[in-house]
Amino acid sequence: MLNLLELLSQVPDPEIPVINIVELGIVRGAKMLSEDEVEVIITPTYSACPAMFSIEEDIIKLLKENNLKPKVTTQMFPIWTTDWMTDEAREKLRAYGITPPEKGEGESHLHIPKKCPRCGSENTKELSRFGSTLCKSSFQCNDCLEPFDYFKCH
């Protein structure tokens, strides 16, 4: 039988292509509605994340390429949280140069030192609370001096 989640894992996040939409927690479920019709349930991340539009298009394109009729349903509740991101995805982010959000940090994350994804030092400083995309903020390592992105805890 076709493993739908495995298939959907081929859709990368448009802004951070090393992770996919399943391990990000955006895909909440997928099921066959009939022999060739598939319903994919997705939950939006940030209110204004522009990637959500292309994610939907990418899902539709992928399913059509696999001779399936796509139906994408947006589910608003429960709301998306970075806690749904898999450990594997967090590790991929770190290797890519983005410090991942830790599980269950919640609001306390603003006060927790962010580890440099390159040298691992916790001696870092915030450069800007807002970054190049809605999900990131900018930091710099005081030891290796490299600037880096932090994926905000949400």
């Binding site: 940030y46 209110s47 204004a48 450069l127 800007s128 807002f130 809605l134």
Partner: peptide
């Protein structure tokens, strides 16, 4: 630069909320 980005991030959040 950082403030320019911060304000437009906040503005974008507002637009996203209004869209919803």
């Amino acid at each position: 630069l950082e403030e320019d980005i911060a304000l437009t991030n906040i503005a974008l959040d507002y637009l996203g909320q209004s869209n919803n």
